[in-house]
Nucleic acid binder design. Structure first.
Lengths: 208, 208
DNA sequence: GGGAAAACCGGACTCTCGGTACAGTAAAAA
DNA sequence: TTTTTACTGTACCGAGAGTCCGGTTTTCCC
C-alpha cells in the first residue's frame, strides 16, 4: 500500500473540505458560506463549483471523507490493541484506553463529529446524505457488536444486557462527550467519559 | 403555588418560541428564518421585533425557557423517585427508570436538546448565550454530583471513580442517546441508553 | 512540444434574509 | 376612560447565498 501523489485538483478539493469541516463544526452547515470557503482557499466561486455540484454535494463529500477517515482510525486502533492482547475482552479494554489517549492528544480538543453536527440540521440535507449518516452509525454498531459477541463467549456478562445497546453506547459516549467538552471548553472531559465507559465494560464482563 | 393566566403577549411569545424550537432542532438556528416563524405564528415582522430585540435575543429566550423547563422536569422526577425510596442509591435508580419511561412516552421521540444543538453552532451566538449553555451543564453536574455524594456515603463504589465524571455521564448519555435515536430514527434507543447507564450505576455501587 | 483534458477565472443575476424606521391602530388592563 | 400592551402596514436597505455561462489558464500525457 503506497500513497499516490494528489493531483492539483484533489489538493484543492481537500483544502476546501478541510476549511468546510472546521467551519461547519463551529457554525453549522447553513451559516458556512461558500464565499468564506473560497476566500480562505484562494479560489473563486467558479472554482468551487467545478469541484462540487452544489452545497449539498459539499455536505455529502465532507461526510463521506469523515466516515472513511473514521474507519481508518478505528481499524488502526483495533489492530494496535489486538497486537497487544489476544483476549477479546482485554483487547477491547486496551482499544478503549488507546482511544482515550488519542483524544487526550488532540491539543485543542476534539473538533467535533460531523454526523452529530448533521443530525441537528438534517432537514437541510438531501435524503441520501441523511441515509449516509444512518449507515455510518450502523457500521459502528456492527463493528463493536462483533467485538462484544466474541467477548461474551468467554466472559458471561454480570447483568443481562442487550449487546446492541452496549455497542451503541460507544458512539453515544463519544458524541455526548464531545458535546460536554465543547460546552464547558474542557477537552479532558471527553477522554474521561471514554475511560468511564471502559469502567462499565470492565464491571460488566470482569466484575469488581 | 398557583398558575397565573398568561397575557396575550406572553401567549404569542410562547407560540413563537414553540415554533422556533421545533424548527431549530430540525434545521439549525441559522436556517430558521424569522419570516417562516411569523408566517406560522400568524403575526407580522413588526410583531416579532416587539417581542425580541433581534435573532440572538430569540436564541437566548429559547435557551432560557428550555433550561427552566428542564429544571422543573428533573425536580419533579427526583421528587417522585424520592417519595418511593428513601435510600439515595435506590432513589437514584428509580429516578433513572422514571427518566427512561418519560422518554419512552414521547410519541415521536425526543425532539432534541437545545444545548446540544447550540453547541455545534456556537459561533453564531453572543458570548452570554454560550455562557448560559455552559452554566446549564454545570447545574446538571452539580445536581447529580450532590446525589452521588450521598450515595457513596452508604455504598462505597466498586471502582475508584471520579464522581464529577459520573455526574457528567448523565448528560453525556442523554445527549448521545438523542443523537443516536435521531440518526437511526428509532426513539427507543434513547431510553435504552438511559437504562444501560442505570446498569452501570447498579454495578458500580451495588455490584452484580 | 503540442493537443486535450483538467482546473480554474470573471462577472452577472436572482432571491432571501436580517434588520431598521416609523406611523398608526385595536385590544386589553388599570 | 385612560393608558399601556400588543401589535399591523409599508417601505426600505445592505449583505450574502446559490447558480449559471462563457472564456482562460494550467497541467498532464503522449
Amino acid at each position: 500500500m503506497h500513497i499516490q501523489p494528489l493531483t492539483k485538483g484533489e489538493q484543492t478539493r481537500h483544502r476546501i473540505l478541510d476549511l468546510a469541516e472546521k467551519a461547519i463544526l463551529q457554525k453549522g452547515f447553513a451559516s458556512t458560506s461558500i464565499e468564506e470557503l473560497i476566500a480562505a482557499a484562494g479560489i473563486t466561486k467558479s472554482g468551487f463549483f467545478y469541484h462540487f455540484r452544489d452545497k449539498n454535494d459539499l455536505a455529502r463529500a465532507l461526510l463521506a471523507r469523515y466516515l472513511e477517515r473514521d474507519e481508518v482510525i478505528f481499524n488502526d486502533l483495533f489492530a494496535r490493541a489486538d497486537a497487544l492482547h489476544e483476549d477479546p475482552l482485554h483487547g477491547f479494554l486496551v482499544f478503549l484506553k488507546l482511544l482515550a489517549d488519542l483524544m487526550s492528544d488532540l491539543p485543542n480538543g476534539h473538533p467535533g463529529c460531523v454526523v452529530a453536527s448533521y443530525c441537528y440540521q438534517d432537514q437541510l440535507f438531501s435524503r441520501d446524505v441523511r441515509e449516509m449518516t444512518a449507515e455510518g452509525v450502523r457500521i459502528w454498531r456492527a463493528r463493536f457488536r462483533q467485538r462484544l459477541d466474541r467477548i461474551v463467549e468467554k466472559y458471561p456478562p454480570k447483568l443481562d444486557v442487550d449487546l446492541d445497546t452496549v455497542a451503541h453506547m460507544v458512539a453515544v459516549v463519544i458524541d455526548g462527550g464531545i458535546i460536554l467538552s465543547k460546552n464547558l471548553s474542557e477537552p479532558r472531559y471527553l477522554p474521561q467519559q471514554v475511560l468511564m465507559f471502559r469502567n462499565f465494560i470492565r464491571l460488566l464482563f470482569l466484575g469488581p
